[in-house]
Structure formats: structure tokens, C-alpha cells
């Protein structure tokens, strides 16, 4: 077979779309949108839409930069080797330029249309994900997920600031909830895709500290998440705090999260034939958890404190 015979077609629009990690972006958009809707105050719908769009585009830009930087790692993992760069459909520099373009564009539009505090937070979140997490922490420390989880916690903070114009206690609590949620979410995933991470030398917690330690830490974070998720109920409505609807949802969701984490934390896999069902259940519950918690926050605000 000659080199010419294997020449791939140029990347099409779907490849560029895939660079933005659309599935991850769904959660980013949702938490940002919910914070925007739950924040005390009002925002013109066009500006609100623009703010959420900028959060999404900024996250997409950061994801494209992650694809660019991790192309070699992606090529070594079954889960990621069909991505546009490792599969040979796209040049690395195209992903880098696309990522920079989306990132700069989203920050500029956010600044001009919404405000420069929200734009600064968006810029920081992009740098946090693309540089602090992807380039610096991920290949160096098993705590990568803990500190890097901050990147995914920014969207509600940005959405809130887009409405109120300042950083108060409530958006910091929302940031902290996602920050605390991230380690058990990713470590549950890492427990059942462990061999892939080990193969490419990424120091994920199960690879470096062992499964037993990871399971204990999942339990610790889930136990801390339960009281933290109820803090919004202690904040006054006028400052964006939540009421009983959110409190009830947070109790049930965090209680379920803790119970599943206890199952994962206390069990030992039976061997290579173990299907790791509790770990998979925890991972999927963690996704439902965040969607439902933020949906409850919006429902609470709109039902109990309309107009505030």
C-alpha cells in the first residue's frame, strides 16, 4: 500500500464539532443556564442566551485545546483513539487554532455583551482547564481530578455573575458543590476504565494510590457533598438562597449519592470477571445528580420566590 493510497479525506464539520466534547458540554451548559435562571435579578433573554452560548463556546474551545495537547495520549486509549487527531482525520495545529479561536471569541463576546467580570471568569476557567488541568496537573499528580475539577465548576459561577454582576456566597457554594462532586464522579469512571489510563501513564488515583484508597476517597467526598449541597438552604432568598423544594431534592439526591458511594467504598472487586456494576451505577447517578440538583434550584426559585 502506498502513502497516497491511505491519504485521508480532510476533516469535516463533524470533526470540529467533536473537538468541543459536546456530551461534556451538555452538563456545562445546563449548570450555567440553571445558575443564570436561579440568580436573583433579571437579564434580557437575548443577553442570557448570549451568556450561556459564550460559556458553551468557551468550554468547547478549552476542550479543543485539550484534544490538541492530548493527541498522543488519546491515540493510546481505546476510548479516545477514534477522535479526529489520533485517527488522522485532522492536523494537530487545526485543533489548536480552532480552540484558541473559540476561546478568544467567547471571552470577547462575553465581555462586550455581558460584562468583563463574567468574561474574566470565563477566561480563567478556560486557562484553568486547558493549562492548569490538561498541561500541568493531569500528567503529574493523582490529585489532577480534585484540583482540575475546579474548571468544570466555573459555569454556574459565570452564569450567576452574568445576572448579578458580582460574586456572592451562593455562586461560590454552587462552585464548591461541583468541585466536591467531580472526584467521585471521575474516580467512579476511572475504576471501570482503569486499564486504559494505566496504559498511557496517566496517574489517575486508582493507578497510583490503588483501588482501595480511591474507594475510600470517593466515600469521603460523597460524605462531604451531602452537607455542602444543603448549604443553599441556609442562605436568605434575597441573596439567592434556596428553599424547601431544593432542600428536599438535595437531601434525596445527596443521600442516594452517599449510599451508592458507601457500596463502592466498602466493596472489593471479586476479580477480572467482576462487572463493576456499583461503580457504573455511581457514575450514572452522579450525572443524574448534577442535572436534577440544578433543575431543583431553578424550580425552587421560580416557585417559591418568583420575581426576586
Amino acid at each position: 500500500m502506498t502513502q497516497a493510497a491511505t491519504l485521508p479525506l480532510p476533516a469535516d464539520w463533524r470533526d470540529f464539532y467533536q473537538l468541543t466534547k459536546p456530551r461534556v458540554m451538555t452538563l456545562v451548559i445546563f449548570t450555567g443556564l440553571c445558575a443564570l435562571l436561579a440568580a436573583p435579578g433579571s437579564i434580557n433573554p437575548v443577553l442570557g442566551f448570549t451568556a450561556v452560548l459564550c460559556i458553551a463556546v468557551g468550554a468547547g474551545g478549552a476542550a479543543a485545546l485539550n484534544h490538541w495537547w492530548e493527541a498522543d495520549i488519546d491515540a493510546g486509549m481505546r476510548r479516545t483513539q477514534s477522535r479526529p487527531i489520533p485517527s488522522g482525520r485532522m492536523e494537530r495545529t487545526a485543533a489548536r487554532d480552532f480552540g484558541i479561536g473559540l476561546s478568544v471569541g467567547s471571552v470577547l463576546v462575553m465581555g462586550l455583551a455581558i460584562g468583563w467580570l463574567a468574561a474574566a471568569l470565563l477566561a480563567f476557567s478556560i486557562v484553568y482547564y486547558a493549562v492548569i488541568y490538561t498541561i500541568w496537573l493531569k500528567p503529574r499528580t493523582p490529585q489532577n481530578i480534585v484540583i482540575g475539577g475546579g474548571a468544570g465548576a466555573f459555569p454556574p459561577l459565570i452564569g450567576w455573575v452574568a445576572v448579578t454582576g458580582d460574586v456572592t456566597l451562593m455562586p461560590i457554594v454552587l462552585f464548591s458543590i461541583i468541585f466536591m462532586w467531580t472526584p467521585p464522579h471521575f474516580w467512579a469512571l476511572a475504576l471501570f476504565v482503569q486499564t486504559d489510563y494505566a496504559k498511557v501513564g496517566i496517574p489517575m488515583m486508582p493507578v497510583v494510590a490503588g483501588e482501595a484508597s480511591t474507594r475510600r476517597q470517593i466515600l469521603v467526598y460523597a460524605a462531604l457533598l451531602l452537607p455542602l449541597s444543603l448549604v443553599p438552604c441556609l442562605i436568605p432568598f434575597a441573596q439567592g438562597g434556596a428553599g424547601w423544594i431544593y432542600g428536599l431534592a438535595a437531601s434525596v439526591l445527596s443521600g442516594g449519592f452517599l449510599l451508592l458511594s458507601i457500596r463502592v467504598g466498602l466493596r472489593r472487586p471479586t476479580g477480572p470477571d467482576d462487572t463493576l456494576k456499583p461503580e457504573k451505577q455511581l457514575f450514572f447517578w452522579s450525572i443524574i445528580y448534577l442535572f436534577a440538583l440544578f433543575a431543583a434550584l431553578v424550580a425552587d426559585r421560580w416557585i417559591l420566590a418568583p420575581g426576586l
Binding site: A4, A5, T6, L7, P8, L9, A11, D12, R89
Partner: peptide, 13 residues
Amino acid sequence: MTDLPDPRSPEYL
């Protein structure tokens, strides 16, 4: 996206 056998072929172009 699939690789085509010959980049000079009309199908590829």
C-alpha cells in the same frame, strides 16, 4: 470518514 483507495481517483476528488 473512510479512506479512499486512490486520492487521484474521481471518487476521492
